[in-house]
Design a protein around this nucleic acid. Structure first.
Length: 557
RNA sequence: UGAGGAGUGGCCAAAUUGGUAAGGCUCCUGACUCUGGAUCAGGCAAUUCCAGGUUCGAGUCCUGGCUCCUCAGCCA
């Protein structure tokens, strides 16, 4: 049989297969996911995590987790812990390969000394402002620092004194000596080290000089013998610099490949903006179920499987892209449909009285836990004379093609009987529908011979006497606009926040849900997928609406 | 206007390297269904950024344009 690849390779995997053909990296694939521990991971990171770990797995290689902790001012162990939790939750294992740029500070320092000795780096006393001015602009060459031609000995001496803490923050930096007129701004004598007298979350007070990301990142990849350094597009212009370091230092050369970062409609993805949402209380925290953070998605009820599938399905390319939020939801539903147990719950209750049903009778009816997976079995649901049904499932004057309950109309109560609406009770003053009365056909209980009678629809319900109260949090998109950042003059993305992104209400749920535990996921039949929020109390569970069910019913006017 | 990237249905994304535009999402039909869910079947939707050129044949090659993105932190 012809073994045809069912799916074409993305451009990164094409490069890797080509490399493996030529033996460029000795047929080894070693990647890494390199977050800075200065914030929480979001779904954009998930794309990168899946790509890096997934690529390594695909080619029998390894993937490291490395924290790029080169700036003690912004970083914290809190973030290290959350990042590890999120990567693990997504389903990836870095085994014993948990590294930190700070593990390599000594090596990085020695590399810097080599550069100084080669005349490739110098200590510069210019101020922040001056360095900015001397750099020039994209269209005009910069000019050389007056400190550029210090002797090797003087540079060595000053760099070592920088390390020993002799100088104040901001007074000196170590710079690469490349070309102040270089057309690529990043090559205009970039800063390698700056002085920061701040305690580092791992190295404590051992250091008061810290390497810049641009200097550290490539060398860290090299030290770890990374073969393919996969990163996002904005680092494409940095690549010549990274290559320059590697060449001057004569060390292992990782191959950097850049891909386009993920964007999703109706959401923002930058750490800065997400931080703003949290700090200014537009959401309740990093794990607010409306946030695109991994912890937010987790709390919302997303599954790792759905996220991994999403990352796989969106592809990897170099063109800017905006993925439709609907695709994310599609991946979610696809997974939840298979996983989630079905339950009955009524969000907008309308009292339904079955007139010919015995007053005190309670029947325990069999209900299917998941029709997609019969191994999940059945459960009992109590049925009695007075029920709650969904307000949307009844109309006094229904339009054409309304299949649900209406005066004189028959519907089936899920897992129970076929009923016929006989009367509508309304408030005399307001005309509001208070309750609906009906009769049931005792021969039509699910499973009975006569239960097969065709009716137009089946609606869900909950027995009033047995129902439990629960809080439901109904989420909508956080932003009303597809692109929240497209704003008029003087406005910003926060002006596009959806005022209805969270709606809290009390609903009725079937009694079997009383024991539900935080994190559990259910499908409330005909409504959507919900998961138990950690805010739940013993007597009063809280459910987050993860995503609604698709609804192809449209009211015809 | 310097440098580096990218342009294929509404949104993603393929096209075996020059052979006659896959697939997914969205939307719309229909079938089936004790979830108007799921499933199944079908449909709408593309001068492949533009203009020339080479070729029997171009999304793929050549020439010239256009548009968009990234870079002027002692952030990553």
């Amino acid at each position: 049989m012809e073994a045809k690849p069912e799916k074409s390779l993305n451009f990164i995997h094409e490069i890797i297969e080509e490399d493996n053909k030529t033996g460029k990296h000795g047929n080894i694939v070693h990647t890494r996911f390199p977050p800075e521990p200065n914030g929480y991971l979001h779904i954009g990171h998930a794309k990168s995590i899946c790509l890096n770990f997934g690529t390594a797995a695909k080619y029998n290689g390894l993937c490291n987790l490395r924290f790029d902790d080169t700036n003690p001012v912004k970083e914290d162990v809190e973030y290290v812990d959350s990042i590890k939790e999120d990567v693990r939750w997504l389903g990836f294992d870095w085994e014993d390969r948990e590294f930190y740029a700070s593990d390599y500070f000594e090596t990085l320092y020695n590399y810097a000394v080599i550069l100084i000795k080669k005349g490739n780096a110098y200590v510069c006393d210019l101020t922040v402002e001056e360095i900015g001015q001397y750099r020039g602009t994209v269209t005009h060459a910069g000019k050389e620092s007056p400190y550029r031609n210090r002797s090797v000995d003087e540079n060595l001496d000053m760099f070592s004194r920088m390390r020993s803490g002799e100088f104040a923050d901001g007074t000196k930096v170590l710079r690469a000596k490349i070309d102040m007129a270089h057309p690529n701004m990043l090559m205009r004598d970039p800063i390698l080290y700056r002085i920061i007298h701040t305690e580092h979350h791992r190295t404590g007070n051992k250091w008061c000089i810290y390497p810049m990301y641009d200097y550290a990142h490539g060398q860290c990849d090299s030290i770890e013998h990374i073969t393919h350094s996969i990163c996002t597009l904005e680092f494409e212009v940095h690549r010549p610099l990274y290559d320059w370091f590697i060449k001057e230092l004569e060390i292992h050369a990782p191959q950097q490949i850049e891909f386009a970062r993920l964007n999703i409609t109706h959401t923002v993805m930058s750490k800065r903006k997400l931080l703003e949402l949290v700090q200014e209380n537009y959401v309740k925290g990093w794990d607010d179920p409306r946030m695109p953070t991994i912890c937010g998605l987790r709390r919302r009820g997303y599954t790792p499987e759905s996220l991994r599938n999403f990352a796989d399905i969106i592809g990897v390319a170099k063109r800017d892209n905006v993925i439709d939020f609907a695709l994310l939801e599609h991946c979610l539903r696809e997974d939840l449909n298979k996983q989630a147990l079905r339950r009955l719950a009524v969000l907008n209750p309308l009292k339904l009285v079955i007139e010919n049903y015995p007053d005190e009778l309670v029947e325990e009816l069999d209900a299917v836990n998941n029709p997609e997976n019969t191994e999940t079995g059945l459960r009992k649901v109590p049925f009695s004379k007075i029920l709650y049904i969904e307000q949307e499932d009844f109309m006094e004057n229904p339009p054409a093609k309304f299949f649900r309950l209406a005066p004189g109309n028959e519907v089936r109560l899920k897992y129970a009987y076929i009923i016929k609406c006989t009367e509508v009770i309304k408030d005399n003053n307001t005309g509001e529908i208070k309750e609906v009365h009906c009769t049931y056909d005792p021969e039509t209980r699910s499973g009975m011979p006569l239960s097969n009678r065709k009716v137009k629809s089946t609606i869900h319900w909950v027995s009033a006497k047995h129902a439990l109260e629960a809080e439901v949090r109904l989420y909508e998109q956080l932003f009303t606009k597809e692109n929240p950042e497209a704003t008029e003059e003087g406005k910003d993305f926060k002006d596009n926040i959806n005022p209805n992104s969270l709606q809290i209400k009390t609903c009725f749920i079937e009694p079997s849900l009383s024991e539900s535990k935080s994190g559990e996921k259910y499908q409330f039949e005909r409504i959507g997928y919900f998961c138990v929020d950690p805010d739940s109390d013993k007597g009063k569970p809280v459910f987050n609406r993860t995503v609604t069910l698709r609804d192809s019913y449209k009211i015809v006017k």
